[in-house]
Write a protein that binds this DNA or RNA. Structure first.
Length: 116
DNA sequence: CGGCTGACTTACC
DNA sequence: CGGTAAGCCAGCC
């Protein structure tokens, strides 16, 4: 069955798919890049409701302070930590060092995305 | 139609 | 570092 997403959700998904492996981004950052400043929660909604078929790198998305969106020790958190570890991102005390692994898209990347 | 919720964030104390 | 408050808004009841 086909999923009908509104335009905002489409943009968010596109933006999420821009996150390169080995990097992480925050909900707010994604909302900004998707052209939806202040709508971090919408990003969360999309992630929660998006079908797995989209193969979204949800595990590369964290809170603004680098902490996982899930509570430490939860099943989801552990799965996320596992996947991040696979890409070389280390999670310490349920948090990631945004300075080291945070995604810093270049202006060129953003412009390229806008063209698509 | 109104209220509540939440994979959020920033500011302030 | 923890607690409150306010802003945000789609989706569910």
């Amino acid at each position: 069955m086909k999923q009908y997403l509104n335009q905002n959700q489409q943009k968010i998904i596109q933006t999420i798919q821009q996150i390169p492996a080995g990097c992480v981004a925050s909900y707010g950052q994604l909302a900004d890049l998707a052209g939806l400043p202040g709508r971090a929660r919408l990003v969360g909604k999309v992630l929660r409701s998006a079908p797995d078929d989209l193969k979204l790198p949800w595990y590369r998305i964290l809170r603004a302070n680098g902490a996982l969106a899930f509570s430490a020790g939860s099943e989801q958190a552990m799965r996320q930590i596992d996947r991040l570890a696979d890409e070389g991102v280390e999670v310490i005390r349920n948090k990631v060092d945004m300075k080291t692994y945070g995604w810093q898209p270049s202006l060129a990347d953003i412009l390229f995305k806008l063209e698509q």
